[in-house]
Design a protein around this nucleic acid. Structure first.
Length: 438
DNA sequence: ATCGATGATTGCCG
DNA sequence: CGGCAATCATCGAT
């Protein structure tokens, strides 16, 4: 009969600490000692922390050593290692995949192709040249453009490589640091080599994502550079005024047969290349050919529109030639009121702006050798000017005026099988042929 | 933003 | 392969 209530008591005592049926001393006693104990514990812990922070490194090492030498340590450590191994494996299994990021591969390929990430000098320039040839189609030796391009490209490459190296170095440093740290810690807490490996791969991933940004921006820079320098069509530049003058000069003074020979093209190309940094020494003088092709087409298509221009250049050539013949080789006297006067006599509808570059045109290299030739083209152009200015009214009539000079009714210049030597002797003032190619 | 001018390219022809 | 015609794509002025 005695035991029952005791059991009951003990039960209730455990289950309900604050039961009103419990004796006073029990409640107070347990409660009091518990609170004091916790305070004591916290105080102890704080105290320990304080002492730890106050400890010197040697003391800490000593403690660590003591801990390592604890007799239970190996056993516990093994158990922990086993548990860790399992969890790590499960983690690793969860995120095992490592696909070779297509984006990164694209960037790498591109940088390689552009000669940025390839081997240093030779490979780089070779790749650049190859890229140039591929994109330019006629990527010959326009070295002026390409040297500039290559200079900029190698600049990019240099920056890229130094940055890459920096990242690489930082990555390695960080990796070794972390590895050392982990190895050090693996003595006190279970760290498997696999875990270290994983850590390292995480670090590498982080750094390679940084590298990818670098690669991306490098790619962008290269693309910009490329489109700037190599893709001429995308970034076409107008010829400067003097080059246009030169070409127009030739065109209108050879209006009867505006097909410059290879030599003439070369001459024009050289003259224009002085002022046109663009499209340099293409062996075919492609830009001259392009220009004449476009010019012929567009002239033919709308002669009226070009009439004014034709007058202008014809007059200019005439004036220039006149100066050349009258002044001998001193045709390029500065600021010729003379020329203005003579132009005025042709009833020019244009302002003096056309004389601006007369001197520079013929004063350059033609002068000596071309005086005679200029006389001939002078006849040509004078004839044009006179015939047009005589009855100059508007575009439509001008159209008719020009047509006898070589353009068929169907369009297309007639074959002009009449070099000056054939026709000029008998044709008198009408000899239109200025085959004055030097 | 729009539009004409213009250099370059493409496709075709002989 | 050179020229023509059509077309593209950018420049430069408005």
């Amino acid at each position: 009969m005695d035991e029952q209530p005791r059991l009951m008591h003990s039960h209730t005592g455990v289950g309900m600490a604050g039961h009103p049926g419990l004796p006073q001393h029990m409640q107070e006693g347990t409660g009091g000692t518990d609170g004091d104990g916790r305070k004591q514990d916290i105080g102890d812990i704080l105290q320990q922390i304080m002492t730890i922070t106050d400890q010197s490194l040697d003391e800490a090492q000593a403690r660590k050593h003591a801990l390592n030498c604890h007799r239970m340590k190996p056993a516990l450590f093994n158990v922990l290692c086993e548990i860790k191994e399992k969890t790590v494996l499960s983690i690793r299994g969860a995120q095992e995949e490592e696909p070779p990021d297509p984006q990164l591969m694209r960037l790498d390929n591109m940088l390689l192709a552009e000669g940025v990430s390839g081997p240093e000098k030779g490979g780089g320039s070779a790749a650049a040249a190859a890229a140039a040839a591929a994109s330019g189609g006629a990527g010959a030796d326009n070295s002026a453009e390409h040297s500039d391009y290559r200079a900029k490209l190698s600049q990019i490459r240099q920056i890229y490589h130094t940055e890459l190296e920096k990242y690489e170095q930082a990555c390695n440093e960080f990796t070794t640091h972390v590895m050392n740290l982990l190895r050090e810690q693996s003595r006190t807490r279970p760290i498997s080599p696999k875990e270290i490996e994983r850590m390292v791969s995480i670090i590498h991933r982080k750094f390679s994502s940084i590298q990818m940004q670098l690669k991306q921006s490098t790619c962008e820079a290269v693309m910009i550079l490329r489109s700037r320098f190599l893709d001429a069509r995308r970034k076409r530049r107008n010829f400067n005024k003097q080059a246009t003058e030169i070409l127009n000069e030739y065109f209108y003074s050879h209006l009867s047969n505006p097909y410059p020979s290879e030599e003439a093209k070369e001459e024009l190309a050289k003259k224009c290349a002085i002022t046109v940094a663009q499209t340099t020494k293409d062996p075919k003088y492609k830009y001259v050919s392009n220009w004449f092709g476009n010019k012929r087409i567009r002239y033919k298509k709308n002669i009226g529109k070009f009439q004014e221009e034709a007058n202008m250049y014809a007059a200019r050539t005439a004036v220039n030639a006149a100066n050349a013949s009258s002044h001998g080789s001193q045709a390029n006297s500065p600021s010729t009121p003379n020329s203005a006067g003579s132009a005025g006599s042709f009833n020019m509808s244009n302002s003096g702006d056309l004389f601006m570059s007369v001197q520079s045109l013929n004063g350059d290299s033609y002068q000596g050798a071309q005086v005679g030739a200029n006389v001939q083209s002078q006849v040509d152009t004078l004839r044009h000017v006179i015939s047009q200015t005589g009855g100059y009214s508007e575009g439509l009539t001008a159209n008719q005026m020009y047509s006898p000079q070589g353009i068929n009714a169907n369009g297309g210049w007639q074959d002009a099988p009449t070099p000056s030597s054939v026709t000029s002797p008998t044709e008198g003032p009408g000899s239109v042929h200025s085959d004055t190619s030097n």
